[in-house]
């Protein structure tokens, strides 16, 4: 039986976000903003207020897309998630500063982020790693870009309007982590296979 995915429209109420649980499959509609390593360092060190209009109530997406310039605008070609754990030192801080609904990435994050999600009622969503073309097609509009000159294409803040962007909740606001669960279960298997 195929579970029907949950539709999430941003901005969403804290109650809606707090109701999401690990394992939920979700289709996101709304604004997401790409941010990778340089962007996270910048947000934590400078805390610029000028980013609030694009971030508050929205999602940060760990992604360095392939973009092609077309006339005055940009076309998004391929845009899957990048490894989230590199932002672990910054993420909880960024979520709280900008009151994010959460983040989208891949590979999951650690305990500090988990505590941040709990505190702010935010969620970690996992997109399918490598599904660059499929995910780019769910971006209906590239609204704008910030810090392009300073950071370059993969690291800039791309403000994207997405429709039915497919993700799975792998860390929720009650401290749940699918990554922790799978790690624990597979550790038991490893011990058995290795006879340790």
């Amino acid at each position: 039986m195929k579970k029907e995915p949950i539709r999430l429209v941003l901005p969403a109420s804290e109650e809606t976000l707090r109701a999401l649980r690990i394992g939920d499959e979700v289709l996101i509609t709304g604004t997401v903003v790409t941010a990778r390593d340089m962007a996270h360092k910048y947000m934590v060190e400078k805390k610029p207020d000028s980013l609030r209009d694009i971030l508050t109530g929205g999602l940060i997406y760990h992604c360095g897309p392939i973009m092609v310039k077309e006339g005055d605008g940009w076309r998004i070609v391929s845009a899957g998630p990048t490894t989230s754990s590199r932002e672990e030192p910054y993420q909880a801080d960024v979520i709280e500063t900008y009151r994010l609904a959460g983040v989208i990435g891949k590979g999951g994050m650690g305990e500090k982020t988990s505590a941040g999600l709990k505190k702010c009622g935010a969620v970690y969503f996992h997109a399918v790693g490598g599904a660059g073309t499929l995910l780019a097609k769910r971006v209906k509009k590239v609204r704008e870009v910030r810090m392009l000159e300073e950071f370059g294409v993969p690291e800039a803040f791309w403000v994207l309007e997405v429709v039915d962007f497919p993700v799975v909740v792998t860390m929720d606001s009650v401290g749940g982590s699918l990554h922790r669960e799978v790690l624990e279960a597979s550790s038991i298997q490893r011990k058995e296979l290795l006879g340790l």
Binding site: G64, G130, G132, T133
Partner: peptide, 15 residues
């Protein structure tokens, strides 16, 4: 995604 990338000639993954 594999089918879409093949049809469009776009990178399967952005990395």
């Amino acid at each position: 995604n594999v089918e879409m990338s093949r049809a469009d000639g776009t990178p399967i993954c952005q990395d």
